[in-house]
Simulated assay, not measured.
Amino acid sequence: MEAVLARMRDLDRRLPPHDGVAVFNRVYLTVTETLHGRIEGGAFPDPRRAGDLTVRFARRYLSAVESAAEGRRSPACWRPLFQYRRHPGIRPLQYALAGINAHIGHDLALAVVASCRAQDCSPGALEGDFDRVGDTLVALEERIREDLMPGPDLLEVADPVTHLIGSWSLQRARDGAWAAARLLWTLRRSPDLAGEFTESLDAGVGLVGRCLLTPLPVPHPRPSCRTALA
């Protein structure tokens, strides 16, 4: 766990603050530090098993970042974030949600299956750990939205970002990841089918990420009644 945290902290130091990957990395670093503290504090019945799942999960994100930095092809779910990471029309919350979408929607299912293989157990044995990790993510989601929202003056019903972020749900993504992990485990003896499903999952999550990163106009504050009537 300390090794993946060190890599995330290194990214936090090296990346420009407004880079889209840096925005997500800060969010994920907070999540991983929180999970590490909970595991060390005894919140998980089997710390070794929970730590294995958490580390395998984090490594998938770090591997994608490394692939992009070296000019290699990264998973489809991560490509929108890497392609639009410096776009002036994309707001920090969009970057954070696009990264969470890629990591939960695609990486989490594959991390569960990899952890099951390594520990010689079925997904059912990891369900409690999966739920506890998910509960930590959901608890942090509201704080993430509050920290990265553009500000109360911009949260108008007509503001496109309000509709965009309302179309995505971490809880639904988490439920989908668990269903995908169980299906991949069932398909483990049919590698061709498992590969096809994984590729389809990757592409579908990438499409959602591209939608979340739709460039939006910067809204202007609405004039006051006095200004409007002047």
Rank of each mutant, 00 (worst) to 15 (best):
R73A: 12
V21R: 14
C121Q: 02
V65P: 10
P88N: 06
F57I: 07
T30S: 11
A69P: 07
G134E: 12
C116Y: 02
G41T: 03
V31K: 11
L140D: 03
L93V: 12
Y84D: 08
F57M: 02
D147Y: 10
R14V: 12
G89E: 00
V27K: 08
T136C: 12
R13H: 08
I39A: 09
N101R: 13
R91W: 12
G99D: 02
P16C: 04
G51H: 01
I100W: 09
A125E: 10
V21D: 10
T34F: 07
G151C: 04
R72T: 10
A109T: 06
D52T: 13
I90Q: 06
H36T: 09
D52I: 10
H36F: 15
R38D: 00
F44R: 03
W78S: 13
E141D: 07
I39N: 05
A118D: 05
L97A: 06
H36M: 13
G20A: 07
G20C: 08
Y95Q: 03
R73G: 09
Q94E: 15
Y84F: 15
Q83N: 14
R132A: 10
R86Q: 02
P88W: 06
G134S: 11
L62M: 07
T32D: 12
H103V: 05
R49H: 06
G128H: 02
S115E: 14
A64E: 00
R56M: 07
